[in-house]
Write a protein that binds this DNA or RNA. Sequence first.
RNA 1: GCCGAGGUGGUGGAAUGGUAGACACGAAGGACUUAAAAUCCUUUGCCUUAGGGCGUGCGAGUUCGACUCUCGCCCUCGGCACCA
Length: 811
Amino acid sequence: MKNRIPYNPSLIEPKWQKKWKDSKIYTVDLDSKDKKNYFSLTMFPYPSGDLHIGHWYAFTPADSYSRFKKMKGFNVLHTQGFDAFGLPAENAAISRNINPMKWTFDNIDNMRGQFNLMGNSYDWTRELITCTPEYYKWNQFFFLKMYEKGIAYRKNGAVWWDPIDQTTLANEQVVEGKSERSGADVVRKMMPQWYFKITDYAEELLEMDDLGWPEKIKHMQRNWIGKSLGTDVDFKLQKGNKIISTFTTRVDTIFGVTFIVLAPEHDLINEVTTEEHKEKVKNYIKNSAKSSEIERTSTEREKTGQFTGGYAINPMNNKKIPIFIGDYVLGTYGTGAVMGVPAHDQRDYEFAKKYELPVDVVISKDGKITNDLKKANESYGILVNSQNFDGLDSEKAKKSITDFMEKNRFGKGTVTYHLRDWLISRQRYWGTPIPIFYDENENIIPVDINELPVVLPEAKEFMPTGQSPLTLDEEFLWFDHPKYGKLRRETDTMDTFVDSSWYHLRFASDESSKVDPFNKERLKNWLPVHQYTGGAEHAVMHLLYARFFNKVLRDLGFVDFDEPYQNLYNQGVLLKDHQKISKRSNPLAPDPLVKEFGADAVRLYLMFLGPWDQGGDWSDDAFNGITRWLNRVWDISTRDTDELISNDENNKDFEILINSTVKKVSEDFERFKFNTSISTLMEYTNSLSKIWNAGCNNDLWKESIIILIKLLSPMAPHITEELWGLNGQEFSVHNQEFPSWDDQLISTDTKTIVVQVNGKVRSQFDIEGTKSEEEIFEMASNNEKVQENLTGKEIIKKIYVKDKLVNFVVR
RNA sequence: GCCGAGGUGGUGGAAUGGUAGACACGAAGGACUUAAAAUCCUUUGCCUUAGGGCGUGCGAGUUCGACUCUCGCCCUCGGCACCA
């Protein structure tokens, strides 16, 4: 017996990591044409300084999938980088007086080492760090191109303000009235800010039919964009000739309007308010500004308002209707004014009851009028009390009334979106400087594209004051322009979501170019990203922004495809012992686990936990199962075949086992079902143990081991590389072709037929070769167990599923 | 409130119209050991009068046959929410 080496991951893992690096096996030739290209990308991390288990859960299955694709014959680009701008660096600077650049780069160095422990297949020569001028220069470049086209613009308006982080936020970054990042209750502020005109692309962003994305994400994006078809109806003021435009999706209820409500921010409030109501209206506006946005948008809250003293005229019937202001109407949606139809809108109903306004029913289920409403009837029906539109159903009435209004020029069909333009200004330091100057009259003067990058200067003061820290840097702030003289620089920086909106393009493009952001030829060969993976929390932020950016870059002529990510897969959330993983209460750090059990075991266990998209529940106990199995894999793959008892009787079954295992593992990989591909491999090794004990053909055994190593190699790269060598194979297993299977070798001559009586399993038997249906019924009914259940009963139906099952239906 | 995903042994999960519980954990028993650990073997859904009966959140339905399809309800998680 040979002296066998035990499995020692802490010895072999660093060895192979070094060898892979030295031999550059993961460096991709972007211009190679001999294979089909496959770009496998996973959302890059923020360099927090620690690669935690959640990162492993996101990255290792994606790495395994990329390795699988490589073995399947693709030229795979799998890259990694760091989303390196953002507040934590700045907060570290504030609390610990560390330079944000140094903090970030120290963290990156540390994380690279942690990434290395994973045994990844990233092409690190293509690493990106977004806080470097070589990278963010292109943010500025795109910004200026977008400014030229009017897609980037500056506007003074109401914005969301995060009082903890002391900066404005985009709509998408406000969740339930709180800052998505800091959790602070956001407030409204009026300030001039820079925006990207994402609303111009609202309609195109809704087109997602061809995207291989989870329906859930598409759904969330559609909801966020929030398209709704309706009608703008113009109400003339009773006094003067100004017009209040209201947006409604239910223009069929126009004859039921009994009041109008304006948002407290509405432009015409001063116009409509009469002298005697001025004071009350002013107070109402003041109070509603005081109440937080959460209070204002709570559905539970009682509706409040204030009569303005003014009246408007319903253009359809010339009725005089009172104008209120009320903060249940949002200034940011539609026209900021609504027509109140209490009979057919629950919110308007509540408002009407409170202020004792009439409730006029104009829609009825059966054409008859019922007046004792307990709540609004919001369903469609037949129009009543609606002059010559009486009798029409809601659907038709909407169209006819809108047509009528368009003809008479007091209304028109419109489309409204929930989506707002993307506010990108941030009053913080650690981000891309917005490349803009202002002259003394606040005129905007864009930085010359040839002068890019506008380098973010080293700052001394980071305290968030509501003004960008760059304001304090006099040297940065003032610029002597050859043409315009003394100019003030924009001191706000860009939202970091700008950085991640196009990074995938940069991974595949020529990073050496100083003139163009991308190498078009390479983009053509590598994009869109074939497979993107990451968390669902980015559904309406990163994933929407990146789609928008792609369309803008297409219209600017930089890319010639419509979507950035062809296929998307969302991993679930990893728990530990049914709880959220947190550093304090139930920590789960990968580094010590790797030290003790090896990266392969951690990788495998993360994939074995359950289906990747549904998340998983880590338990230290269950983790033992994987380390035990890896030891068995090691044991079985290092046996001395001289000790194998030769036996050719089970050759056929052995071949079936090998082929069906290859098939199942391959198919599971394609579907991201890593958990079942591992359990299939476990069954395979269990069978191999039994086969060894029974004795088998020596060549088949050797083949079965080579196949085991190959099948396992994408998921457990280190142990398989070692076993590959120990089995006399040339470096590297990761450059091998993934095994293929022969369907012919899987189908057996022997089939097991299950016999049911009334759908209950009573027996089973084996058949050889092909048998006729008659023969099968014959064999089935002769079975002793089946007989017991058939005697004294009448067979009324016989079901036969070929090679599988017989069912006797008896009475 | 609306939309989406899900609910299967003691636990993680498998099976997407055809033998429910693969695989793994845990547990029990055994082998090896002075002993323990490790490893290996056996058993392991529940009830049981030992012949069976019951069983995939609950209740109906479709079907020869339902974890799987349909309808209603309950619960958990995620998203959206005064969007006119």
